[in-house]
């Protein structure tokens, strides 16, 4: 089976700084994969390279959406094109459309799946109205799946923190992705909220057939949720494998705790 996302020798230089150094990574359909590493290891840069925010210096990012016959190289494409191809992401620091309602935030996610243009907007013909209503209904369904329906017409900035994080996921799901990239989805959540998040992510994978790649610092969440883990440090991939192997890996322990100088 071809992996849905295959990253080969990805490299990202910022001037003299090599933020991502020849990282290989692949994800199969319906897997949940975690990318971990100490602060400043290059995890978010890696995300930015895949989603088109940064243009990688070298390497390949190849996607193969489920059901597709051909693979596609996507590095260097603009973020909106990559989203259209079926990769959606959330942000480490919440980037919601603060002054729009919760429903509108999700509706924006459906932008690429809509077709109405300026003429349609002004004339408001039957086709446009039907499309609009369908988007509203679809968005509401997505909100229900993430237990956000009670906030529908609230402004996004007035939501509690945990709900804002969930809304980011809802908005990303609205783009109809096959791969969801979550950048620290549990950051700042309390244990109860984190627990609910684990359920939500599992549900998204099982019910929506969405593959998930996540960056996270909460090891509890990473160990319970992910099937495989990739560990990066100073831009380099230092380990990858099942959670139990990663826990015992001396390289990983060294990266997180430092070297034992007495040994």
């Amino acid at each position: 089976m071809t992996p849905v996302l295959d990253v080969k020798k990805l490299r990202m230089d910022f001037g003299g700084l090599r933020a991502v150094n020849d990282v290989d990574l692949h994800i199969n359909e319906k897997e949940i994969i975690a990318l971990i590493g100490p602060n400043g290891a290059g995890k978010t840069t890696f995300f930015n390279c895949i989603t088109g925010v940064n243009k990688p210096t070298a390497g390949d990012v190849i996607i193969c959406p489920p059901g597709a016959t051909h693979t596609k190289r996507i590095n260097g494409l603009k973020p909106n094109v990559i989203t259209e191809k079926g990769l959606a992401r959330t942000f480490q620091n919440i980037r919601l459309f603060q002054n729009m309602t919760v429903l509108e935030n999700v509706m924006i996610g459906r932008h690429t799946r809509m077709h109405a243009g300026i003429a349609g907007a002004i004339l408001r013909n039957k086709k446009t109205r039907e499309e609009e209503q369908k988007v509203i209904d679809d968005s509401y369904e997505i909100l229900k799946k993430l237990n956000l329906e009670q906030f529908v017409n609230e402004l996004a900035k007035n939501l509690p923190y945990g709900a804002q994080r969930r809304l980011e996921i809802a908005r990303a799901m609205a783009t109809d992705p096959f791969l969801l990239l979550l950048d620290e989805p549990a950051a700042g959540m309390n244990p109860q909220e984190t627990h609910e998040l684990v359920d939500t992510i599992n549900k998204i994978r099982d019910n929506e057939n969405i593959t998930i790649l996540l960056i996270e610092h909460d090891m509890g969440l990473v160990m319970t949720l992910s099937e495989r883990i990739y560990v990066v440090d100073y831009g380099k991939l230092i380990a990858s494998g099942a959670p139990d192997d990663i826990k015992k890996d001396p390289e990983v322990i060294k990266a997180y705790l430092g070297e034992d100088t007495n040994a």
Partner: peptide, 8 residues
Amino acid sequence: IASEAMGI
């Protein structure tokens, strides 16, 4: 940045 990530 977020709008671009949403496909706009």
